[in-house]
Design a protein around this nucleic acid. Structure first.
Length: 861
RNA sequence: GGGCACGUAGCUCAGUUGGCUAGAGCGCCACAUUGACGUUGUGGAAGUCGGGGGUUCGAAUCCCUCCGUGCCCACCA
C-alpha cells in the first residue's frame, strides 16, 4: 500500500474512531494482566460544546487509559453527560426570556420536559466532539446524570442519610440570588471587593438619657431590628445592657440592648444591630437570645411588609438611599466613612447574594467530613499535585452543613413530602411525579425543590458502575483515577470522597489528578465573555486530533495553569507526520515480504543499539506514566522516535537494511506512541500487511528484548566518530574530507556508515606511517580527517577553546577531589567517578595538546 | 486576615530524595540536501536558575527574608 508523503488526519480520523467503536476494543477485558484500570470522564454539560479544558481532560485521561489498556489491564473509561442543573437552567431561562416567556408561564413538569427536549437536541454536539478527540470511552456504558439509575441511587442515599439523621430540614440563613430565584451552597458564592460606606446611626435611648451609635454597611435593614448588642466585656456600654432604644425609623417599637460575645469591641462603635433574618451570625445570636426572626427582604430582593409602610416594596439599592436620607432628615446620621469590604455575589449573574432565612434541606457534614479526613490522612488516595491533599483536608475540617435544596425546575426532584395539616411532618417518598400523595390517611404535598447538582454527581464513581450489584462495581471500584480541574476540588472531589465512603464504605478512587486551567497569553482563563477561547474542533480540523492532544499535553503538569495557543499543535502535527514517514520508509523496505513476522533479529551494531534505546524508551515511558508524569512520558517517546529511530537508525538502515528489524521497530514504536497519538498510530497499523486485521488499541506493550551490550557500546563509538567529523567539517566549512585511520577495526567495519552519515569523502586505512590532517580528539581513535594545513589553521582557535574548557574542568574536579571534606563526606561512588573523570579528561587533553602542537608545527613549515 | 502555587534561554516548559559542564521543544543564526519526511537534516548562538542571606564538601533543588505573578478559603456589622 502506497501512502501519500504527508499525513492527512482528516482523511482517516472518522473511520479510525468508527473502527474502534464498532470493534468493541474500548470494552474492558483482561489480556495478560489481572489488574484493572478505571476512570470516568468528568461528565461535560450535555447542553454545551467542549472547550479546551475538556480537550485537556481527555488528552490526559485518554493517554493514561490507552497506556494501561496496552499493558493488558481491563481498562474502563466511562463516558457521561451532566444535566448541569443550575447551569443549564440559566441558559434555558434566558431562552425563555428571549421568547417573551418566563418560568411562571409553565408548570414544573412542563418546564422539566421542555429542558429535557432542549438538552436532548444539543447533546449530540458534545458526543461527536468527544469522538473527535479520540476518547477511548465505552459508549455502551454512557451515563446521563438524570438516568434512572442516578436518580435511584441519589434517592437511596438521601433515604439512608434521612434514616441516619444526617438530613435535616431547617430554617437557616441561605445564600439567595434574587435574580435567579434560588439558593446556593456557600461554595457557589463568589466574593468581590467593593467600595461602600460605613454609616454611623444614632439610636436614642428610650428613657431619654442619651443615644447609642452603631456602624453599619446596610442601613436599609435598620427598619426592623431585633435588638442592639454589645460585647459583655465592653466597659463603655456595660451600663446600657438591658436598656431599650427607639428604632429611628420604626415608630413605637423599642428594642433591647443585649450583650453577646460575638460582638467585636474594636470594630466600628462596638455596638451592632441584630438582624436575624439576614445575617448568619445574627441568626445565631437571635437563637441564643430568643429574639424574633423578622423577614425584612423578600426573595425578590425588595423590602417586605414587615417594614414601615413608606419603605415597602423598595429594592435594596433604593431603600439604602432612602433610609440614609430619612436618617439625615431626622438628624440621626452621625458619620459616613469610606469602607471597602467583600460582597458575596451570584457566580453566574453577579447579583449581590441576599442572606435570607429559608426552609431548606441540609446535610450534616461533620460526620462525613471526619471520616473523609481519616481516610485521607491514612493515605488512601494519592494526589497529584500532592499539596492538594492538605488543601482538601483543611477544607473538610472547616466544612459547614450543606444546603442541598435548589428552587429551580431542572434537576432531580427532592423525594420529600410535607403534611398539609402539619408543616413539621415531612416524609420520604420516591413518588415525585405526584404533586400530592396520601399516606396513612394523611395528605402530603411534594417539596417543589430539586437537589443541588453536586448531590447526585458526588455519587458519580459508583453510580456509573451500577452500585451496588453491578459487575462493573464489583470489578472496577474503587476507580483507579479521578482526573479533573482543580477548580472543582471542593464542589466535586471532596463530595465524592465523603459520599463514596458513606455509601460504599470505600474511597471512590485511588488517585486524584488535578489539572490547571487553560489560560491565554496574558494568564487569563479562557472564557466566552472574554473572547479568548480556542475551539478544540477548529484546532483538530487544522492540525489533527493527535496534534491537539500532544500540543496540550506537552508541558502539562498537574496543578499548574497552562497556556495554549494554536501554534502548540504544530509540534504534535510534525510528530504525527514523522511517524507517518517512518512507516512509509519501513513499509517500502519491507516491501512484499507480507509473510514477515515482526520479531527482533538484530545483526548489525545499529540493530543492537536501537533495541537498547527501545527498551530504554519503553521503561522510561512506563515509569513516567506510573508516576503520572505524562508530559515527561511524551518527551521520551518523542526523542526516541525522532532522534534515535529516525535520525540514527533509519539513516543507518539506508546503508544496511534489516527488514524484520524495521517491521519490529515500527510495531513497537506505534505501540509506545499510541497513548499520545492514537489516530495516526492506528491509521498506520491498519496499513501493516503483517498485522492482518488486528487493532493497535488492544495490542500489548512491547516486552524487553535482548541485545548485545558490546555491540551497543561500539555503535555509540561510531556515533561519536560521526558527530565529531560533522563538527569539524562544519566548523571549517570544508566539503567532504576523507577520514584516515590506523588500526581501528570499528571504523574500518563501519566505514560506509561513517562516510554517509558523517558526510565524508570516504573512510580509508592510512598507507604507511605518515599522518596528515586533523585528528579526532574526542573519539579516542587513531583517526584523522584529511584537511589541508591552511584550513586546519582556522580550526586552531576552536581547538584552543576546547583546550581551555578541558583544563578548567580538570582544575575544578581536582579542587573538588582534593577537598578533604568531599573525600570523606561524599558518597564513595561519586568520589571514584570524579577520579575516573579526571583521568579521562587528562587523556583527551593530552591528545588535544598533541593535535594543537602538530597543527602549529605544520603551519610553521 | 489565613493558606497554596509559581518565577529557570526571546517564548512555552522539564529538572524526581541536594551530586558531573542546568535540559527540551519552538523561535533565531549558518550550512546542507535528488528517493521516508521542507511538517527535513547538520551545526551554532543564547541562561546572574526573581533579588539577598544562610545550611552544606556541594544548592535551580533545603531554610530565612524580600520582590513579582496567579489562585483558594474566610470575612467583623
Amino acid at each position: 500500500m502506497k501512502l501519500p508523503s504527508a499525513y492527512q488526519p482528516e482523511k482517516y480520523e472518522g473511520d479510525i474512531y468508527a473502527l474502534w467503536e464498532n470493534s468493541g476494543v474500548f470494552k474492558p477485558s483482561n489480556r495478560g494482566h489481572d489488574d484493572y484500570y478505571s476512570l470516568t470522564l468528568p461528565p461535560p454539560n450535555a447542553n454545551g460544546d467542549l472547550h479546551m479544558g475538556h480537550a485537556l481532560t481527555v488528552a490526559i485521561e485518554d493517554s493514561l487509559v490507552r497506556y494501561h489498556r496496552l499493558q493488558g489491564k481491563a481498562a474502563l473509561y466511562v463516558p457521561g453527560a451532566d444535566h448541569a442543573g443550575f447551569e443549564t437552567w440559566v441558559v434555558y431561562e434566558k431562552k425563555l426570556a428571549q421568547e417573551g416567556k418566563s418560568r411562571f408561564d409553565y408548570s414544573r413538569e412542563e418546564l422539566y420536559r421542555q429542558v429535557w427536549d432542549f438538552v436532548q437536541k444539543n447533546k449530540h454536539n458534545f458526543e461527536a466532539q468527544l469522538r473527535a478527540l479520540g476518547a477511548s470511552v465505552d459508549w455502551t456504558r454512557f451515563t446521563f446524570t438524570l438516568d434512572n439509575k442516578v436518580i435511584g441511587t441519589s434517592y437511596q442515599t438521601f433515604k439512608k442519610m434521612w434514616e441516619d439523621g444526617l438530613i435535616y430540614r431547617g430554617s437557616r440563613i441561605v445564600n439567595y440570588c434574587t435574580f435567579h430565584g434560588t439558593s446556593f451552597s456557600d461554595i457557589e458564592v463568589v466574593h468581590e471587593e467593593e467600595k461602600t460606606n460605613l454609616w454611623h446611626i444614632a439610636y436614642p435611648l428610650a428613657d431619654g438619657s442619651g443615644e447609642v451609635v452603631i456602624a453599619t454597611t446596610r442601613p436599609e435593614t435598620k427598619v426592623g431590628q431585633a435588638a442592639l448588642m454589645v460585647n459583655p466585656k465592653d466597659k463603655r456600654y456595660k451600663h446600657l445592657v438591658g436598656k431599650e432604644v427607639q428604632q429611628p425609623l420604626v415608630p413605637d417599637k423599642n428594642i433591647k440592648i443585649i450583650a453577646d460575645e460575638y460582638v467585636n469591641m474594636d470594630f466600628g462603635t462596638g455596638v451592632v444591630t441584630v438582624t436575624p433574618g439576614h445575617d448568619p451570625n445574627d441568626y445565631e445570636v437571635a437563637r441564643r437570645n430568643n429574639l424574633p426572626m423578622l423577614e425584612l427582604i423578600t426573595t425578590e430582593g425588595k423590602l417586605s411588609n414587615n417594614v414601615p409602610q413608606e419603605f415597602r416594596g423598595m429594592t435594596v439599592t433604593v431603600a439604602r438611599q432612602t433610609v440614609v436620607e430619612a436618617l439625615k432628615k431626622k438628624g440621626l446620621l452621625r458619620k459616613v466613612e469610606d469602607y471597602t469590604h467583600s460582597v458575596g455575589k451570584c457566580y453566574k449573574c453577579g447579583t449581590v447574594i441576599e442572606p435570607l432565612l429559608r426552609e431548606q434541606w441540609f446535610v450534616k457534614m461533620q460526620p462525613l467530613a471526619t471520616r473523609a479526613i481519616e481516610e485521607l490522612k491514612a493515605g488512601k488516595i494519592d494526589f497529584y499535585p500532592k499539596n492538594k491533599k492538605d488543601q482538601i483536608i483543611r477544607y473538610l475540617s472547616e466544612l459547614k452543613d450543606w444546603n442541598i435544596s435548589r428552587q429551580i425546575p431542572w434537576g432531580i426532584p427532592i423525594p420529600a413530602f410535607q403534611n398539609t395539616e402539619d408543616a413539621s411532618d415531612w416524609i420520604f417518598d420516591a413518588r415525585v411525579h405526584e404533586e400530592s400523595i396520601e399516606v396513612d390517611g394523611k395528605s402530603y404535598k411534594r417539596d417543589p425543590d430539586v437537589f443541588d447538582t453536586w448531590f447526585s454527581s458526588g455519587q458519580w464513581p459508583y453510580v456509573t458502575l451500577d452500585y451496588p450489584s453491578g459487575d462493573d462495581f464489583k470489578s472496577h471500584y474503587p476507580l483507579s483515577l479521578m482526573e479533573t480541574g482543580f477548580d472543582i476540588l471542593y464542589q466535586w472531589v471532596a463530595r465524592m470522597i465523603m459520599l463514596g465512603l458513606y455509601v460504599t464504605g470505600e474511597v471512590p478512587f485511588k488517585t486524584v489528578y488535578l489539572h490547571g486551567m487553560i489560560v491565554d497569553k496574558s494568564g487569563q482563563k479562557q472564557s466566552k465573555s472574554k473572547g479568548n477561547v480556542s475551539s478544540p474542533l477548529e484546532i483538530i480540523s487544522e492540525y489533527g486530533s493527535d496534534a491537539l492532544r500532544i500540543g496540550i499535553l506537552n508541558g502539562q503538569s498537574p496543578g499548574n495553569n497552562q497556556l495554549f495557543m494554536p501554534s502548540k499543535a504544530t509540534g504534535g502535527r510534525n510528530f504525527a507526520n514523522k511517524l507517518w514517514n517512518i512507516a512509509r520508509f519501513v513499509e517500502d523496505k519491507v516491501g512484499d515480504n507480507h509473510h514477515l513476522k515482526s520479531t527482533p533479529t538484530p545483526s548489525s551494531r545499529a540493530d543492537h543499539w536501537i533495541l537498547s534505546r527501545l527498551n530504554h524508551a519503553s521503561t522510561e515511558i512506563s515509569k513516567a506514566f506510573e508516576a503520572y508524569r505524562i508530559s515527561e512520558a511524551y518527551e521520551v517517546i518523542y526523542s526516541f522516535v525522532w532522534h534515535d529511530l529516525a535520525d540514527w537508525y533509519i539513516e543507518a538502515s539506508k546503508v544496511q537494511t534489516n527488514p524484520s528489524m524495521l517491521a519490529y521497530l515500527l510495531d513497537s514504536t506505534l505501540k509506545l506512541s499510541h497513548p499520545f497519538a492514537p489516530f495516526v498510530t492506528e491509521t498506520i497499523w491498519q496499513t501493516l500487511a503483517w498485522e492482518g486485521d488486528s487493532i493497535l488499541a488492544d495490542q500489548l506493550w512491547p516486552r524487553p528484548v535482548q541485545f548485545n551490550a558490546l555491540a551497543v557500546a561500539e555503535f555509540k563509538s561510531v556515533i561519536g566518530v560521526i558527530t565529531e567529523a560533522r563538527h569539524i567539517t562544519k566548523a571549517l566549512g570544508v566539503g567532504r574530507p576523507k577520514l584516515y585511520f590506523n588500526s581501528a577495526p570499528l571504523i574500518e567495519e563501519e566505514g560506509i556508515l561513517i562516510t554517509l552519515l558523517g558526510r565524508l569523502g570516504g573512510a580509508l586505512k592510512a598507507q604507511g606511517s605518515e599522518r596528515k590532517g586533523l585528528k579526532l580528539t574526542n573519539s579516542g581513535y587513531d583517526a584523522w580527517l584529511d584537511i589541508d594545513n591552511l584550513a586546519a589553521m582556522n580550526y586552531l582557535s576552536s581547538l584552543r577553546e576546547k583546550q581551555v574548557v578541558r583544563q578548567e574542568t580538570i582544575k575544578r574536579l581536582q579542587a573538588r577531589v582534593s577537598n578533604p571534606s568531599y573525600a570523606s563526606k561524599a558518597p564513595k561512588a561519586l568520589v571514584e567517578q570524579s577520579h575516573a573523570q579526571i583521568e579521562e579528561e587528562k587523556q583527551l587533553l593530552t591528545s588535544l595538546d598533541t593535535e594543537i602542537k602538530k597543527i602549529v608545527k605544520a603551519i610553521e613549515i
